[in-house]
């Protein structure tokens, strides 16, 4: 009946109202200042520098020289011939981008195939058990990504437990080379980001009214039809959210391709790091970083729109 109570509630009398409003405003921004300044200066502002760098020329020992150039962007599509200085279409970097997007997509689909039944299973458990399952699913996420990736490397390498066991039981006589393949990177990506898929899926499946499922059975639907016609449509917002939450970090992955791809199977993340490291082409690295960010922002926009439409809130 009373409107939303407000701790900053103010007397409605004109002057007093204005004064206390101004006081509340000042207090608010004072409280926000440390966080906003820190992130603004050292989180947002660097992106502006990156944007500027992408239009400059590389310095000899890293860094940049202040000379305007669009080379960083043309370099993506064309290769400059060293002898006659002509531009020839080149797919080297496009390939890396394509590979990254492809790998991230396939890993997303893989995570969905594993994550959906898992999330459904958790949602159909009694509430006390759900928390334990959710805890088990999220726990790896809070542990070191490097170490988890290293653990995967340990078991799939030639001398790893899988190959050794397979050889011991005589199924194979030479190690089955899994490490440093696209398959290894794919698996590493699923492994790293699976919790991001399960959580939003669970969030939307948990809201599913199981009476709808019963109603569908009552109307002669088979289990598969119930899954396809009732459960999956209900989980749609979760599916979209989960896919984007896996796709984004998968696309920008650095550690996974570095360790499991062996530095040969590059993804965008490695390409960017390489430009700021041994390749010493900061402008090109900056341009690649910006392109990656544009793709990610586009994906996030879809996510936000979808979340807004479905009325789903994610913390």
């Amino acid at each position: 009946m009373a409107a939303q109570p407000d701790i900053a509630a103010a007397p409605a009398d004109g002057l007093a109202q204005a004064q206390s409003d101004a006081r509340a405003r000042r207090r608010r921004w004072l409280l926000l200042a440390p966080a906003l300044l820190t992130i603004g200066l050292f989180g947002l502002f660097p992106l502006v520098i990156t944007l500027i760098y992408s239009f400059l020329s590389p310095g000899t020992y890293g860094g940049v020289t202040w000379e305007f150039s669009t080379n960083a962007y043309t370099q993506f599509l064309f290769e400059r011939d060293i002898f006659d200085d002509t531009l020839a279409f080149s797919t080297t970097y496009l390939n890396i981008f394509g590979r990254s997007i492809g790998l991230a997509l396939v890993a997303t689909i893989g995570a969905l195939i594993i994550g959906f039944p898992t999330a459904y299973f958790i949602a159909s458990k009694p509430p006390e058990q759900r928390n334990i399952w959710l805890f088990l699913i999220t726990l790896p996420f809070w542990t070191n990504l490097l170490i988890r990736t290293y653990a995967v490397l340990l078991i799939i390498r030639d001398e790893g437990i899988i190959n050794v066991s397979l050889m011991q039981i005589g199924l194979i006589d030479r190690p089955f080379g899994m490490l440093y393949t696209d398959g290894a990177v794919f698996m590493g990506l699923i492994y790293s980001y699976l919790p991001f898929m399960v959580l939003p899926l669970y969030a939307s499946l948990e809201k599913l009214d199981f009476r709808l499922v019963e109603a569908a059975y009552d109307l002669y639907a088979t289990r598969f039809q119930v899954l396809r016609r009732i459960i999956i449509p209900a989980a749609r917002p979760g599916i979209i959210a989960g896919c984007i939450l896996v796709f984004i970090p998968g696309l920008g992955a650095y550690i996974t391709p570095e360790l499991l791809g062996g530095g040969k199977k590059l993804m965008i993340g490695n390409l960017i790091a390489l430009q700021f490291g041994s390749s010493r082409n900061w402008p090109f690295g900056s341009a690649a970083a910006l392109i990656l960010m544009v793709v990610v922002m586009a994906a996030l926009l879809i996510y936000v729109r979808n979340a807004g439409k479905a009325g789903v809130r994610h913390g």
Binding site: T50, I248, I272, M293
Partner: peptide, 18 residues
């Protein structure tokens, strides 16, 4: 929430630049 939205590698290289 900005640091959560930008890919880590992008944050890393931009911070290095700054």
């Amino acid at each position: 929430n900005q640091p959560l939205m930008v890919p880590e590698i992008v944050t890393a290289v931009s911070t290095l630049a700054l």
